[in-house]
Design a protein around this nucleic acid. Structure first.
Lengths: 221, 221
DNA sequence: TCCAATACCTACTAGCGAGTAAGACTACTG
DNA sequence: CAGTAGTCTTACTCGCTAGTAGGTATTGGA
């Protein structure tokens, strides 16, 4: 009746550019993850960010540029999280295990990021697909290198480059799909989901149906 | 210079409704697979189909209805192809193998269908996601049932319902991802790609890096 | 206290694309 | 040669959204 700013006061508080840009990117990731690239409107993003549309354009450029920036930021965050979690001096199975743990940990704590990266970016044909395919390609190459390395270590040089890469693609896809499944069954802890995938790809169904499971080497005993 | 209708003559030849509907659906799958749901316009679909826009609406309804119809048709085709390829009276590993062969065979011969199903449908939040998730869910359940069955056959009842389902989700995702990878490496035959995935999920990396591979039981020797 | 830079806004334009109104062509039926 | 049912078209309306023009607060320095 006489008072006002419960939501969306007329004018936003004045803030330095760097801070606003982060807020805008946060809002953009949120909206893009919920609606997808096309269905998301710049009006809604600006509203969620708490500023007006021209600010968006002044700071982040066009809609496409904004989306690309989101993808770059989120993919960097994810790759860093995984790199931080992996233990490079361990045997291959342990490296894979720690990588999977880090991946599922990230997804669990950054659902919006994951949705933008996995669903939205891959389905837009624009320059984003390239951006995204690039990150995905790096992940696949990483896994492929791990495979080749562990194979050659065992004196089994039969894994060709292409074979390793295709297996890595399958593994990455399995991780993505399992992450999606996990979003619908959030009651499970990240470690359990990661362990399942680890068992699948390391042991295989053939072993699993016979009761043979993989488990991490105990740290201290 | 005096004759013409190489492209888009003024008026389309008169055809019975059923035939036109098939043409329209073919065109729609093509355009949707290239551009995605939102970026595809009804104008372009009608042009590719060789008719005018009101025909689209008269026969197939709104854009959403059209897309849903595409998804239903293509998913049915795929499920039938897989069902036709699987051999129900065989042991679990052979069943899985024949299913994978059928799947990659279908994708290889129906790239557009696959793109619509996998990329476009899953990223639209509308009622399509439900439609698509439904088919995907059926596939996952099928695999899960196969897993549970093969586990119980071996007197290892430890695979819980949920565990089997999540493993099946991972496997389906691995198949999808590998199919996408395959689109970028089409020189490989379907059977080779299918065999790789079969080895991965049945034997596991642990066996593969040691040189142990799975291969189908020879039919006649 | 003035000034300039930077943050921020309201209020538009422009164009694309879903969906439709109203009618024209074709073919079969009597 | 009607008449009628089904096929097919041109030529719109109308809403929505990317992007912008032009102007107003706020701050910090001279």
């Amino acid at each position: 009746m006489h008072a006002e700013p419960p939501v969306r006061a007329g004018r936003a508080k004045r803030l330095p550019r760097a801070v606003r840009e982060r807020q805008i990117l946060d809002a953009a990731v949120d909206v893009f993850s919920r609606l997808g690239f096309h269905a998301a409107s710049m009006d809604e993003i600006s509203e969620v960010a708490g500023i007006s549309k021209p600010m968006l354009y002044a700071y982040l450029g066009s809609k496409e540029e904004l989306f690309a920036t989101c993808i770059r930021r989120e993919s960097s965050r994810m790759m860093e999280a995984i790199a931080a979690g992996v233990e490079p001096d361990q045997p291959p199975d342990v490296q894979l295990w720690s990588g999977l743990r880090a991946f599922f940990g990230f997804v669990g704590e950054n659902r919006a990021s994951w949705l933008v990266l996995h669903r939205q970016a891959s389905s837009q044909g624009g320059p984003f697909a390239a951006e995204l395919a690039d990150m995905r390609g790096r992940a696949i190459s990483l896994v492929a290198a791990l495979l080749v390395h562990s194979a050659t270590t065992q004196d089994v040089p039969r894994a060709s480059e292409r074979e390793a890469e295709s297996l890595a693609a399958a593994l990455v896809g399995a991780g993505e799909s399992l992450a999606d499944w996990w979003l619908d069954h959030p009651e499970e802890p990240a470690g359990v989901v990661a362990a399942r995938l680890m068992n699948l790809v390391w042991m295989g169904f053939g072993d699993l149906v016979e009761g043979n499971v993989w488990h991490p080497p105990s740290r201290r005993s």
